[in-house]
């Protein structure tokens, strides 16, 4: 035993250190993924007997109007959420200067990311609230009648995304602020001597050096958009009449909520969401792997 250990210590030690993490990851992530896939082939109310129904859940999904609505909303989320990247960059560049009290300004801009998503949702619900919300009152002042964003089936998703962008922009801003610290001053100097300034300086000198920050910003934003659950749940519960549903919330609704007794269908939605996420995640991983091997 001891001899074996001595001979292979260097080979075994990394695995021993990895073991607790891998065990947790397997129990809480990998195995549940396959369990969900398995459940998605059943008709099961979570209490009684489960019946094997093959791909019927997936077939039903193709004609389910709620599913289509959730999917469309997810795409809107994905596209609009990416606005956080240029917006965060803009604020980061704006704040990347040395004037008195800049640390205070930076922390104020960062503030929305520190508070919980639930609180963000509540704040924005009150902001939009018909009758007393600030946003409602301002619109009412200029327009005569206020707009209750969260009661309007056409506007509600945009209203929630706006709430989500608030902390997301702050997050991206912080990523870029750290990135800007690492921009080589000599390159900026050299570019300046060559007569570059304004947009050209930004595009040809600064942005290429910020590529790692941009990559991370896009990754966290895409994933944030796809798992948008908290805000939908807090602000509208998917309403009015399902207009603000996204896949993650619809999954919760069908499988786990007060009226959710369809574990199989919920699991099937989870599998679809997982597949969509996998497209992005494998893309990201592939890019990271390529970058590392090329060096």
């Amino acid at each position: 035993m001891s001899a074996y250990w001595k001979a292979n210590q260097r080979r075994l030690a990394p695995w021993l250190f990895l073991a607790p993490g891998m065990l947790m990851f397997a129990v809480y992530v990998i195995i549940p993924i396959f369990q969900s896939m398995w459940i998605s082939f059943y008709d099961w109310d979570g209490l009684g007997e489960a019946t094997w129904i093959g791909t019927a859940n997936y077939v039903e999904m193709t004609t389910d109007p709620n599913m289509r609505k959730s999917f469309v909303n997810n795409i809107i989320w994905l596209v609009l959420y990416l606005l956080a990247v240029p917006a965060g960059l803009f604020i980061a560049i704006f704040l990347n200067q040395t004037v008195g009290g800049i640390r205070l300004y930076k922390s104020l801009f960062f503030f929305p990311f520190v508070i919980s998503q639930v609180v963000v949702g509540l704040i924005f619900s009150w902001f939009y609230a018909p009758g007393f919300g600030l946003f409602y009152k301002v619109i009412e002042y200029f327009n005569g009648t206020g707009i209750a964003i969260l009661a309007d089936p056409d506007l509600v998703t945009y209203g929630i995304i706006a709430a989500g962008l608030w902390p997301q922009i702050a997050y991206v801003m912080i990523l870029y602020l750290t990135g800007l610290n690492n921009v080589a001053p000599d390159q900026v100097e050299a570019a300046r001597l060559d007569g570059a300034k304004g947009w050209k300086m930004l595009y040809y000198v600064i942005l290429p050096q910020l590529r790692p920050a941009t990559f991370i910003a896009v990754v966290v934003t895409v994933i944030g958009a796809l798992r948008s659950f908290d805000l939908v749940s807090i602000m509208t519960s998917g309403g009015p009449f399902g207009s603000s549903r996204v896949l993650s919330y619809y999954m919760y609704e069908t499988a786990l909520s007060e009226y959710g007794y369809r574990m199989g269908y919920g699991a099937a939605i989870a599998v679809v969401l997982f597949a969509i996420m996998m497209v992005f995640i494998s893309g990201f991983i592939w890019k990271m792997w390529r970058d590392e091997t090329e060096r």
Binding site: Y128, A129, P130, G131, A148, L150, A151, T236, P240
Partner: peptide
Amino acid sequence: TANHAAIDWQD
């Protein structure tokens, strides 16, 4: 009540 879809029963 208009906008009832955005408010809770307590509101």
